[in-house]
Design a protein around this nucleic acid. Structure first.
Lengths: 220, 220
DNA sequence: GTCTATAGCTGGATAGAC
DNA sequence: GTCTATCCAGCTATAGAC
């Protein structure tokens, strides 16, 4: 409507404001999903926390499920950025003659995921919600990022397995699930809620349990 | 009303019928909690699945939260029965000169929990539902059993740690949480849903990952 | 004691003023 | 584009007939 052919699309003030509002909403959803979970989160809370009316919020996101999707996309983007930074660092390290092992990369990502959870910034969705998971699986933005992340981690997993850094008897798929599961590990949450331990301590313990197991080293 | 002082309380037919109805309800709740989770479960479904009207159901259980509590009590009772059977078996084995290690007992319980999950009989509650968890924590039947189970497992955990069968650097509390977490492990659920593996295979893998870790044996 | 019918409420989603 | 003021579905819980 009212097309002005030669005017290049430059971000108008209004568009920038919308962008900021969207970010505020996604941040609020992220926090609420991390603290209360999807079912307990109400759209009214999201509107209140992001400082706008619910109706305005629904102009930007068509449904509560889409809100959850946007938060998941955001956290996957952060994970992908972290992974890409790791890859870049590994490349320069390899060029300098001090290569980084695939296992070390996987450990770094796992630490990042637990750190994010401990800081209350890891959104968690219910495992069993058919409506929500159907919505996510038909969300291309979400699925693209999930597959990208899975692919990059799978490369490291198979490399670590062939180099003897990870138990090769496990299907790579299972290793991937196990690492993903650390992002919403109830053990981390319970240790945190007990209030007795530092974040660093919790991460070290769960890392050890994940990669070396609960068994004593001597019992091998 | 109409008290007949000398008549001893013997279970009337009606009371037995009520008992069976209660059991049917708890079984239905258990199945629904295992498949759909607490929030997605409706009381109408429970009534339909246990073959009675909702109003009659509410005569036996005062609220949806109480239904969940009853299902949790039932599964904890099954767990306690399993643990007691293990203890009895260990006692006779010890008397026969072939003692069972604490670690072996813990492994057996963990296998039982995963088996129960794989069979769709492990009720799962939302981690973050303040109303429900408050209700559970003020449910004496539930708390008694939870504490009993925790105490019995904790005895095995500290024994296994002092005997070098489990990593002693972990707080016993953390080991306990880690074993409990296997009962609702998303890795188990995902591997099951993939449909590619047998239950025995899944259990073996997750057991190995839990006790020996993801790392290769040579990488120790 | 069991069921039908419904009250009461919560929360997702929207219409319409401005 | 934003907000106020709803609408309406779905759920827990209960009243009242039989």
């Amino acid at each position: 409507m009212g097309a002005r052919p030669s005017r290049p699309t430059r971000p108008s003030i209004r568009e920038q404001v919308q962008r900021m509002r969207e970010e505020a909403i996604v941040t609020a959803v992220n926090r609420l999903l991390a603290t209360k979970g999807y079912d307990a989160m109400t759209v009214d809370e999201v509107a209140a926390e992001s400082g706008m009316a619910k109706a305005s919020l629904y102009k930007l996101f068509a449904s509560k499920e889409e809100l959850a999707g946007a938060a998941m996309v955001a956290v996957l983007d952060r994970a992908l950025a972290f992974v890409d930074a790791l890859r870049a660092r590994a490349e320069t390290a390899a060029a300098a003659g001090t290569p980084v092992s695939a296992r070390a990369q996987l450990e770094a990502v796992t630490r990042w995921a637990m750190q994010t959870q401990l800081e209350g910034e890891m959104p968690s969705l219910p495992a069993h919600n058919s409506s929500l998971s159907a919505s996510l699986q038909s969300n291309d933005d979400y699925m693209d990022r999930l597959l990208s992340l899975s692919n990059r981690l799978s490369i490291w997993i198979t490399e670590a397995q062939t180099r003897g850094q990870l138990q090769a008897a496990f299907p790579p798929e299972m290793v991937l699930y196990t690492l993903f599961a650390r992002a919403c590990d109830p053990v981390v949450a319970l240790l945190k809620d007990s209030g007795q331990y530092t974040h660093a301590q919790i991460i070290d313990w769960v890392m050890a349990s994940t990669f070396q197991g609960l068994g004593a080293a001597t019992a091998r």
